[in-house]
Design a protein around this nucleic acid. Sequence first.
DNA 1: CGCGCCATTGACAGGTGTCAAGAAACGTGG
DNA 2: CCACGTTTCTTGACACCTGTCAATGGCGCG
Lengths: 262, 262
Amino acid sequence: MDIAPSASICEFAERISRDRSLGALERLATFARYNIGESIYRYNDPREHWFRIVAGAARKSASTGDGRRHIVDFFLPGDLFGFGASGGRHFCVEAISLGTLVARYPRRSAESLADSDPQIARNIREVAFDSISRLQRRTVTLGRTSALEKVSTFLLEMADRNHTGPTHTVFLPMSRYDIADYLAMAVETVSRTLTQLRGRHTIAFRAVRQVRICDRDALEEVADRLVDLGARPPEYTGSPALEQLPSEVAPERARVAKRPAN
Amino acid sequence: MDIAPSASICEFAERISRDRSLGALERLATFARYNIGESIYRYNDPREHWFRIVAGAARKSASTGDGRRHIVDFFLPGDLFGFGASGGRHFCVEAISLGTLVARYPRRSAESLADSDPQIARNIREVAFDSISRLQRRTVTLGRTSALEKVSTFLLEMADRNHTGPTHTVFLPMSRYDIADYLAMAVETVSRTLTQLRGRHTIAFRAVRQVRICDRDALEEVADRLVDLGARPPEYTGSPALEQLPSEVAPERARVAKRPAN
DNA sequence: CGCGCCATTGACAGGTGTCAAGAAACGTGG
DNA sequence: CCACGTTTCTTGACACCTGTCAATGGCGCG
């Protein structure tokens, strides 16, 4: 870890995070640099800072008693993490890219700022709500049963989180092992699934960790596509249905094909 | 749905949610009652309220294009849900118990209150942070690979969420189908796994949806137990290790037994 | 150049999904 | 109170996907 403050870096941080800026709170930031494998914070550490990735990437993980590891989330440039009230950390966060640059916001100062400035408080709430949204989508991804669905969803997620715009080339800063522990599957299955997608010309490799998405539609086809459950029919429907009373009981469960054909 | 305001109900709501009270915001609450299967809100609905379960239970779910369903979360008495900034709902929430009673807080009023009262803002932040914590633990549960681990973790979770104290009997308000879609497994496997746990005398059934935990230790043994990853040794350790520098690189991955023996 | 880590591929067994059928629980109406 | 239909829950048989073990190849780095 390495403190590396400088005007240019601050500006860079401001620029890259302008879409999710914490406003006046940005001025409290200090900066630190980490190498691959270094901990940004560890299990049980006191919560003294909130963090934001400026450059590079990190993983948040936990491991079980029998030595298995689970990756809760990946953090890419612009992502805020480590916020939360008090008590010790429940997970640990490690850099996965060389020279990962992290902005650190003192928690106590941030909270007093939030108390005195409703705008800051709103920003923080928004960040928290976004985080909840993302985690909920993540549970859906993890709930997918087949390896193909998981990996396809993962690739699309990484493509969408690429803040440099919807390019067709996705850089994967993490190892296959990390992907495996993120999707809860074996490394070998991750590798096999990627090979399978390449065989179908859905993706291509510019490098081992650099994927080119050749057929986004095919990827979205197998990835999870959420639709409404029990939603009202759109108003422009010509259906002669009776007025749907709110007391209408939705069918408990539509038991249909549970695993799509490959 | 049925509006059922009354002094006694308000008091009851206040009492059951005192540990996670929203303070002055509680006075804005109105109440509604839902039957099994009724939607509290649906996909794409405008976010006009935040909600809290007063009595009964609900499930938050989404379904994919091919008809499969995924349950993101269950809500039990005291749980707040449906908060978030703006835009349409991403999921839908349906009651799963008869006569589920829900408190509703108008979103816009809640947000202005938060702007003018830092204490309210803090409460809301805390609720959001708690929600994030729970969702992160949930990703770990979903990441467990074996059916036994998933079901054991689920039972412990339900036991812990039982606000009436750590009793040994757990009421499951949801169907086996709901549990299956919550844990991302087949109903049959849920059933088989429960039978297996009964066979080991780890649990017993007082009724189909009423589980008695006979051997909590055994349950915790197979459930996920998170430990620190790369944590510093505790200070009271007598280890003669060198001073651990923060630049120490954690091992990328301990490749050990990945699936515990049954 | 050689070492270590990462990634890929193959063989095989076991767990879990799927299909099918039956039992149990629940609500309803006679 | 009992008969009856519906839904939920359980159990069995079987195929297939995925985890595991093993070996090889690729890549960066000292």
